[in-house]
């Protein structure tokens, strides 16, 4: 078995947190996990991605075209990460945008969502979720990344489940934060993923 995941987003969105959660859940399941964190120059606001590889492998770098899941916490970053996609890739996109300063500085607006994702929806299995309202419902905007992991569980691509992920959350968080994240995970799992025409 070999499952490769890219978590992509903007610095400060919980990209590393989501990658670590998937990894620790896979460890609970007894799998070998190699995760790669590349920190760029900016503390906040730049593109950030982590790669999680589950299975009998050693290198943290995913071979070209062999990504199973792109977990895109930000739409532009999700599409950018699709450069590493291949025929077996599913993409899960949180439709909440973080506007890049490169646009506002030139007086430009965030691209139309459907236009933005148009070229990947034609060629990959793309699913959407509006994670922020669910995170707020769970009790904290910062739980967006946990909502996303919950939503990813629905796709059945990752060799992890609710039980192993809750155990990983328990290891990671204090009781108060665990309660919020448990709720966030469950909301992510239960919420219907959206199709292109619904966004």
């Amino acid at each position: 078995m070999e499952v490769n995941v890219i978590v992509a987003g903007v610095g400060g969105q919980g990209v590393v947190t989501a990658g670590t959660l998937i990894s620790q859940s896979a460890l609970v399941k007894g799998h070998n996990v190699v995760m790669s964190e590349i920190h760029g120059l900016a503390q906040r606001g730049g593109s950030v991605s982590v790669e999680v590889r589950i299975g009998n492998i050693r290198s943290p770098i995913i071979p070209k075209g062999e990504t199973d899941l792109i977990l895109g916490i930000e739409p532009i970053e999700a599409v950018r990460a699709a450069e590493n996609a291949g025929e077996r890739t599913d993409v899960l996109i949180n439709i909440g945008p973080v506007e890049p300063v490169s646009l506002s500085m030139r007086g430009k607006e965030y691209p139309d969502m459907r236009e933005l994702v148009s070229e990947i929806v034609d060629r990959l299995d793309v699913h959407f979720i509006d994670a922020l309202p669910l995170a707020l419902e769970a009790g904290d905007a910062r739980a967006v990344s946990t909502v996303m992991v919950g939503a990813a569980l629905q796709l059945g691509i990752l060799p992890i489940d609710e039980e192993s992920t809750l155990e990983a959350l328990k290891k990671r968080f204090s009781e108060r934060l665990y309660t919020i994240n448990e709720k966030a995970l469950k909301l992510g799992m239960k919420n219907v993923l959206l199709a292109l025409h619904e966004i």
């Binding site: 903007v10 760029g40 120059l41 900016a42 906040r44 606001g45 730049g46 593109s47 071979p63 070209k64 075209g65 062999e66 532009i76 970053e77 599409v79 950018r80 699709a82 450069e83 590493n84 996609a85 291949g86 025929e87 890739t89 890049p100 300063v101 490169s102 646009l103 430009k108 691209p111 070229e119 990947i120 060629r123 990959l124």
Partner: peptide, 16 residues
Amino acid sequence: KVSFELTKELPPRPPV
């Protein structure tokens, strides 16, 4: 394997 090629240019997000 061949990886996906994006045809449209995305707004850059350099470190800020």
